[in-house]
Nucleic acid binder design. Structure first.
Lengths: 171, 171
DNA sequence: GTCGTAATGACAATATATTGTCAATTTGCG
DNA sequence: CGCAAATTGACAATATATTGTCATTACGAC
């Protein structure tokens, strides 16, 4: 064991990290579902509304998917369902006949606002006593890992995150 | 902004962390699926076999679910499917007539071993250049967060992780 | 032993999410 | 302009996962 390389030990720790992410992901979705259930939302719907809320301009389904790292189809399904529930609506896209723009209805904005109101004290509770630096460092590490995974997937065709970042204010 | 409390900033960072976990979770499942597809496995199946591999004794479906933080039903479905594919088999449980024990078949062990062989260089590649301390600290932070979420969910009924840890060598 | 409670797996319903395919549309290059 | 390539949404199939319900089984208090 003491002859093991630093690389190998780091890789083992990565494996632990991966397994922990799987578990935590489940717990977070579960907690989010509970938190916003009474608002007619779910973690997934909330996430989609979050992408729309952050953008200054209406987004297409495909843009939301890219912003959230989900597949186009997953978002499409959620958006159509939320449209049926009156949380979002479609608007014609002057620049793209096929790709309609998704906007929140008044009900959608209200539900999202209520969700964020519920989330704030929940998040403060969860962070209580944790080091802000540790949190920030963890975010940075996870971002770095994801960047590597996406680089590998896309064949090194994306030198940075400009595409997603710029898209929030574009299309 | 400068009047914002440390708590509130930490909570904002936590929100970023949560969103990053959602994304990274998707990328990891995707990468895992690709890695073991040729072995007749998926990320989910791999995860289940991993729980079985780590335990010294055969586990029941419910134990695997607890170990991995999944629902009983998710594991049940995967196990039954893998049984149909000859990767695992059921054995009678002397201590519990209803809860059969799940064991890997020779094919299951071979597939799992092949998966781990593929995973090792992949993980080393992914960790290259990352600080082992950062990785370990991130694991610790995520574990702490999950513990809080589970404490909240279970109503504070579980003072520590003894239940899951002890279960690996029990039932 | 008896009885209430918890654990377990079966079954069903639903939500989430990816993959693959296709046609319509847009875009960019020549 | 013309045409190949990429983007986009629709549709379908499948995988993953939770929730809820139920009958059976195990366990503990008494």
């Amino acid at each position: 064991m003491s002859t093991e390389s630093t690389q190998a030990r780091a890789a083992e720790t990565l494996t632990e990290l991966i397994l922990e992410i799987f578990r935590l992901n489940g717990r977070l979705i579960e907690a989010g579902d509970q938190l916003v259930r009474s608002l007619g939302l779910t973690s997934a719907r909330w996430q989609v509304l979050g992408a729309m809320d952050r953008s200054a301009v209406p987004l297409s389904v495909a843009s939301i998917a890219r912003n959230k790292g989900l597949s186009r189809q997953a978002v499409q399904r959620l958006v159509k369902e939320m449209a049926k529930d009156g949380l979002v609506r479609f608007a014609a896209n002057p620049h793209h006949k096929r790709a309609q723009l998704v906007t929140m209805t008044e009900a959608g904005r209200a539900a999202f606002a209520a969700a964020m109101t519920k989330q704030a004290p929940w998040a403060e509770d969860l962070t209580r006593g944790l080091s802000p630096d540790d949190l920030a460092q963890a975010v940075a590490l996870l971002r770095a890992l994801r960047a590597r995974l996406e680089r590998a997937r896309d064949g090194g065709a994306r030198p940075d995150d400009e595409r997603c970042a710029g898209e929030a204010s574009g299309l």
